[in-house]
């Protein structure tokens, strides 16, 4: 085999390999990117149906309720403008508390309830998850504009 042919084959293999990797990445992105919405956006119907996404905000005071099975929890996530009911079955993270920031991942289920598959809170008590802070900030900006 001539070295020119060899070079061509090598380039061909390289391009094919790169193509496979790009395809893998794009495919994985398509399925696994999780978008973030604020409770106000969810209330306005901007969030996708049937696809997982994240919402963030504060756990509304005195909104946490446990069902009789002990593991199903219902609470409201608020950005101070709108509140979205969330249901989650499982053990909550240590730092989950009323009045604290929270981010939940899941889908909109029947009756507009957000069925969370995962609830995240931060590792540091006095730190709000950036997504939650963002949601509250957005809502307050919106309220400020409305008040004008």
């Amino acid at each position: 085999m001539k070295s020119r042919h060899k070079k061509l084959i090598a380039i061909g293999l390289g391009v094919a390999g790169l193509g496979i990797i790009v395809a893998l990445v794009l495919n994985a992105f398509q399925d696994n990117l999780v978008f973030f919405y604020t409770p106000t956006q969810v209330a306005a119907g901007e969030a996708p149906e049937g696809r997982a996404f994240r919402i963030g905000g504060l756990v509304e005071m005195e909104s946490v309720r446990r069902e009789a099975d002990g593991l199903t929890v219902r609470f409201l996530v608020t950005d101070t403008a709108q509140s979205i009911p969330v249901v989650y079955k499982g053990i909550l993270p240590d730092l989950f508390k009323e009045g604290k920031g929270v981010v939940a991942e899941g889908k909109i289920a029947d009756g507009g309830v957000f069925a969370a598959t995962q609830v995240l809170a931060k590792h540091d008590e006095n730190y709000m998850p950036p997504e939650a802070a963002h949601a509250v900030e957005q809502a307050q900006k919106a309220q400020a504009t409305l008040a004008k």
């Binding site: 504060l58 101070t80 009045g99 006095n126 730190y127 709000m128 802070a133 509250v136 900030e137 307050q140």
Partner: peptide, 8 residues
């Protein structure tokens, strides 16, 4: 929270 405090 009303004042939008995120930290002290």
């Amino acid at each position: 929270i009303d004042y939008g405090v995120t930290g002290t």
